[in-house]
Write a protein that binds this DNA or RNA. Structure first.
Lengths: 139, 139
DNA sequence: CAAAAAAAGCAACAATGTTGCATTAATATC
DNA sequence: GATATTAATGCAACATTGTTGCTTTTTTTG
């Protein structure tokens, strides 16, 4: 069984064309995708609402997660370690946005550093957003 | 001259009711506000577009900055150290979102920790988003 | 106070988010 | 493998937000 189908099944979802294709698209791209990017790519194949709902479903299942960005455009990225298992993954990772190629990637290899907060504040979840130059654009 | 008016003037902007009122609203609230929150509060006084443009103007001037959030709702917050001066402030600070009261505040008192990135990545700007319980809800 | 410049308000439209419902497709069962 | 069951899709429709152009009003300058 294909990896994509495995993931879909592992979350108790039905295997459908949109789902498989969107999942493959994320895998092939490897960086965070915005809803317009996905829509444009599949506009001739699938309805806008279907794509919207697929993304929602994937978010609920923990297959995708939202990547906050400063441009206001919501992006989605594959949850790493979300190969077949169904446990929702921790969102504790670094989001890196390249100012050169504009792509946002998730960096799971490095730990999110410990933050010190003022008295009274209690951290439960930390996410780090880094802007800079990515390895591919480093030249 | 009022503090709000001073800030407006210092950026070469004209003093108008919307601008003063919105700035005061931000000061009084002390946490990040979304466009709907601002609109709802001023809907009887100002046009939606005027509010939209005021926020834009304030962003350009460095009076406000966008606060990325995971709910997809864009929020704006006063740039600290943006009292009268016109230099754009560094965005290097912590955004804290309270899971209890839902409010997002900027924490400027603590430094953003150093991040270690994989080979080839170069960080230029780091922003940290922390979810948890704020000092007011800690009780 | 008048002229010049900027901002506000209004209309209009684009893009995105969201829901309900009829139709179609995917799975489980025989 | 056909069929009943259940879920997913497509479509229509509408809400919300983002965005622009243009006219009127307001603010500032002289």
């Amino acid at each position: 069984m294909e990896k994509e189908v495995e993931i879909i099944k592992a979350h108790g979802l039905r295997k459908t064309p949109v789902r498989v294709d969107i999942l493959k698209y994320f895998s092939s791209k490897g960086y965070a995708l915005s809803q317009p990017e996905i829509e444009d790519h599949f506009k001739k194949d699938f309805d806008r609402v279907t794509i919207y709902r697929t993304l929602h479903t994937y978010m609920e299942c923990g297959i995708l997660h939202k990547v906050p960005s400063e441009d206001g455009l919501t992006r989605y990225a594959l949850c790493q370690h979300e190969h077949v298992h169904s446990e929702p993954h921790a969102h504790e990772h670094i989001h890196f946005s390249c100012t050169d190629c504009g792509k946002t990637t998730c960096i799971d290899s490095e730990p999110v550093p410990q933050v010190h907060l003022p008295k009274g504040f209690k951290a439960e979840e930390t996410s780090l957003f880094v802007k800079g130059t990515c390895d591919k654009c480093a030249g």
